[in-house]
């Protein structure tokens, strides 16, 4: 019967389509670290083919332990998997922005240097008793930690093995 033939044809084309799709799977990765060395083998001892900078697109063709096998200028190379991820690198996020509601809330809370987590949450007296002093929040200290920066020049010198 004609319908049956159509039916069979549809099944076959469906299967062929799926096999074709499955075969073409390949993943794209992006370098996230400032730079990533591409080695010729999955080893730090292996020769270095080159250095890919942040944002470089790499097509992965497999994995070998902590290493990702990629094609690099026509050659097979290996890059440490911890330096890449599947989405392009994002811009740096900072929490402290003018008019940021949460930050303002933080400032308000700072009225007393230490606020208990329970009070910040507006919990009932019972709940507050349950929480001990270990639940205090130190926003002052947090801001000191967040504001601490070191200059790029200092960091570069340090990374090159220089003294503090």
């Amino acid at each position: 019967m004609n319908t049956k033939r159509i039916f069979v044809n549809l099944v076959i084309s469906l299967v062929v389509c799926l096999i074709a799709l499955q075969a073409s799977a390949q993943e794209t990765y992006y370098v996230q670290s400032v730079k990533a060395k591409v080695h010729s083998a999955p080893s730090f001892k292996a020769s270095v083919l080159g250095e890919a900078s942040r944002g470089t697109r790499l097509n992965s063709i497999g994995r070998s332990g902590s290493w990702l096998k990629v094609s690099y200028y026509g050659k097979d190379g290996y890059v440490a998997a911890i330096l890449v991820s599947v989405s392009p690198p994002m811009a740096k996020h900072t929490m402290i922005k003018a008019g940021d509601a949460d930050f303002q809330q933080g400032v308000r809370r700072r009225a007393s240097t230490y606020t208990s987590a329970a009070a910040a949450r507006g919990l009932a007296a019972d709940d507050r008793r349950r929480l001990s002093g270990e639940d205090r929040l130190d926003y002052d200290g947090l801001e000191r930690v967040e504001k601490y920066t070191i200059s790029d020049a200092e960091l570069t010198k340090f990374m090159e093995g220089g003294k503090i």
Binding site: F7, L10, V11, L14, C17, L18, L21, Q22
Partner: peptide, 18 residues
């Protein structure tokens, strides 16, 4: 009935069935 589902990637999927 026979059916199949294939994800082209995380956000797109195709399905077919008879």
């Amino acid at each position: 009935a026979i059916g199949t589902e294939y994800f082209l990637n995380k956000s797109w999927a195709l399905r077919g069935g008879i």
